[in-house]
Write a protein that binds this DNA or RNA. Sequence first.
DNA 1: CGAATATCCTAAGGTAGCCTGAATATCAGG
DNA 2: CCTGATATTCAGGCTACCTTAGGATATTCG
Lengths: 139, 139
Amino acid sequence: MKQQLNTIAMLGQAYSLLGFKIVDGVVGAGFPQKPSHSAVFAQIRPEGSRLTELARGANITPQAMGELVDELEELEYVVRRPDPTDRRAKLVVLTDKGRACIAAGITTIEGIEHRITETLGAHGHRQLRTLLRKLLDAG
Amino acid sequence: MKQQLNTIAMLGQAYSLLGFKIVDGVVGAGFPQKPSHSAVFAQIRPEGSRLTELARGANITPQAMGELVDELEELEYVVRRPDPTDRRAKLVVLTDKGRACIAAGITTIEGIEHRITETLGAHGHRQLRTLLRKLLDAG
DNA sequence: CGAATATCCTAAGGTAGCCTGAATATCAGG
DNA sequence: CCTGATATTCAGGCTACCTTAGGATATTCG
């Protein structure tokens, strides 16, 4: 579970770890309107994910997740397709527009990371990440 | 305006600066129920502050601030007293309980800061603050 | 087959945290 | 003393985000 994290995510986690509540980031123009929508984008698998699966991952009820998916479907970021392996289920799948949206978000994040490196220097940026890593590991 | 900031506040500001939205911190048991309540505690002056003054500082409408103060008054953290210098206005003043609440919050924050120093070492903690300071100044 | 289980949907409800609009009281200046 | 600005309050509304309740349908298991 100790995956590679970008600096802003580490900042957020550190902040959260220290007893603060944070709202999930809405980074850049590529992302949809509601902060909670990123709960879908962050989780959805390339082959598509089930509603209940997404709900469990986001720790909300399937009904609440259903509403989010409704909205994202309306915005044409995802579509619901029948699951070929289980005819009870439907798969929530990203559309091209959805993938473009994620790509735009990633570009924004990369831009921010770049700006951090510019400000702190490569060495400083590495130092910052190391310190944050230590904080997260200790927490 | 470049006052001394503790590390957690700096983390939060940095995170916010980088395009994320954060909910104000609820640190420790000393603080009241709602995150937004800290908008009052953070601003209120020892002699008391006016409602509109607090509203401007928190960048919300006086009506919204009025509701927050209502709640805090209900919880006996503050009282409304007539302003001796202006009979239109009332002063929102901390009670003993309110001051105790702030003190408890500060104690909690100090505890967290202490834990950070323990984890990173005094040198590491200073380094972290320096790096965050740079990020904030650049933003 | 029939019962239990899984998935999904609709509907209704609730809270937090804001907002606008309008009423009332007071102040400050000519 | 009239006028326009300022301070507060009451009333009503809104959005984001989540819940519980109940029911439809499809699948798996004994």
